[in-house]
Design a binder for these strands. Structure first.
Length: 114
DNA sequence: CCTGTGACATAAG
DNA sequence: CCTTATGCCACAG
């Protein structure tokens, strides 16, 4: 039996860790994928702990508008943006450019794998 | 059980 | 464009 006892946080970490480089997703998308579309805030909150985990690239998780709303939780001020740009994502003023192009939908990519 | 919180989402002014 | 307000839900104390 698959351990479905995983806590919400745990799931968030797994999904986030599966985000390919150069791609980004939204808190809502992850939350929805986890079956808690309205708990997008939980995803962000979970990311708080994720910052302590290498496998969880929190910088690849942004809000629906593609805004780096969580950058304030990173070490520096533009660290999150730097990381994204380092992966080939153009970020201007904390906003991801060509978001649709970089958007990674867990539903689309992981649907049925959970 | 109740309260506080939070890196969202949406609406309204 | 901006700030406020509300909903929503899971977790911590």
């Amino acid at each position: 039996m698959k351990s479905d006892n995983k806590n919400f946080f745990q799931k968030v970490y797994e999904v986030a860790s599966q985000i390919p480089e150069g791609r980004v997703t939204s808190y809502g998308a992850i939350a929805k994928y986890l079956g808690a579309a309205r708990s997008a805030r939980m995803v962000g909150w979970a990311m708080n702990g994720a910052g302590n985990i290498e496998n969880v690239p929190a910088h690849r998780v942004v809000n629906k508008a593609g805004l780096l709303t969580g950058k304030h939780h990173f070490d520096g001020t533009n660290l999150m943006q730097q990381l994204l740009e380092n992966e080939g994502i153009e970020v201007i003023d904390n906003q991801i450019q060509n978001l649709e192009k970089h958007f990674w939908d867990p539903y689309k990519e992981l649907k049925g794998e959970l």
